[in-house]
């Protein structure tokens, strides 16, 4: 009885807070490394301001995709096809035929393609009972194939000024792309923490059988999660197309791995049922800061990938260690019977 009442009240939330603080700590360390290696750059305040905006802008596309991915993983699934959906949506939105409908037509096409692919993924997984890994792996291959088919393996240049100006527009000194990321992250946070959709997501991922026996339509919800991920990819496709003023079948290569990695180091449990949007955002920022660190030091991207891999392993190891030691510590502190 004593051990029961002595357990920390909001252990889970403490743990989330701690993890996010840890990620902020990693960001601080990365900035310090930047200052030490390139002190002459950091002495210029306008360069620092600019560099922060560059990092955020680089994080914007992958950040939007990671929000969708985080929902899918919390809901007990995985979406390996996000990069391929972006490529298909980007290519479809920039065909000559689509471009003839103007910016509105291009945006609508990108979003519609994302949602449609999400519906196919979700239907295969929820109703066709395919394992998410297999279903979305097949979608990865075929969506990139279709993108190559549509584009004839050519880079499709966007001739639409409105689309192209998304990447160059600034509002109150901050790029529109960063605003889009902010809105998607805020919407994702509200959706996960304040709506019935979010509650269902946690229930379906945490214990699908319990959710089903409580009257939740687990299949329909699973489908919706992949649709949400597809929608995020559609938004991402517009952002990337605007940044490059073009789209091609090979765009957003390996985005699935970056998005999964960001969600995981942000504290999302790969087995589902637990995760945070804020943590995922920090995960994305850590990765784009590393990329930036390598760029300002003119280092090769090969080394960068090795460092990224190391960070993923270190972050997950640290989480496991911290989770165990933290619960242990709190239990001891609150339990008068134990030394």
């Amino acid at each position: 009885m004593i051990a029961e009442t002595a357990l920390p009240k909001a252990q889970k939330y403490d743990d989330n807070l701690l993890r996010n603080l840890g990620l902020v700590g990693v960001l601080v360390i990365l900035v310090i490394i930047g200052i030490v290696t390139r002190p002459e750059l950091y002495s210029d305040p306008s360069w620092v301001r600019n560099n922060i905006l560059i990092i955020l802008q680089q994080a914007s596309g992958i950040g939007v995709v990671t929000v969708g991915m985080t929902f899918v993983i919390i809901g007990g699934g995985i979406d390996l096809s996000v990069g391929a959906i972006i490529a298909l949506a980007g290519v479809w939105a920039t065909t000559l035929a689509t471009q003839s409908y103007g910016a509105g037509g291009m945006i609508f096409t990108a979003l519609a393609v994302g949602v449609a692919v999400g519906v196919v993924n979700g239907a295969l997984i929820a109703y066709g009972k395919l394992v998410p890994f297999i279903a979305t792996l097949a979608m990865l291959v075929s969506a990139r194939g279709l993108a190559a088919q549509i584009s004839g393996k050519q880079t499709q240049v966007s001739a639409n000024d409105t689309i192209n100006s998304i990447a160059t527009t600034k509002l109150i000194g901050i790029p529109l792309l960063v605003w889009i990321l902010a809105v998607v992250v805020a919407a994702g946070w509200v959706l996960l923490n304040r709506t019935t959709f979010g509650r269902r997501t946690v229930a379906v991922g945490g214990n699908p059988e319990a959710a089903r026996l409580a009257g939740i339509n687990v299949k329909r919800h699973t489908l919706l999660l992949y649709v949400l991920s597809g929608l995020c990819c559609g938004i991402g496709a517009i952002m990337l197309t605007s940044q490059a003023t073009s789209a091609q079948a090979a765009m957003a290569n390996l985005y699935e791995l970056d998005a999964i990695a960001a969600a995981i180091i942000g504290g999302t449990l790969l087995s589902g049922g637990r995760g945070t949007i804020v943590g995922a955002l920090f995960g994305v920022l850590v990765f784009s800061t590393i990329t930036n660190l390598f760029a300002i030091n003119n280092l090769a991207t090969e080394v960068q990938n090795m460092v990224k891999g190391g960070i993923i392993v270190a972050a997950v190891l640290l989480q496991q260690f911290r989770y165990r030691s933290l619960t242990h510590l709190l239990r001891r502190r609150n339990d008068p019977d134990k030394p």
Binding site: K12, V202, N207, E209, L213, A214, G273, R274
Partner: peptide, 18 residues
């Protein structure tokens, strides 16, 4: 445990699951 509860979620969310 395997059919009814979300073990990591707070008691009140488990009670209002339905």
């Amino acid at each position: 445990k395997s059919q009814a509860l979300l073990l990591d979620e707070p008691v009140f969310k488990n009670m209002t699951l339905a």
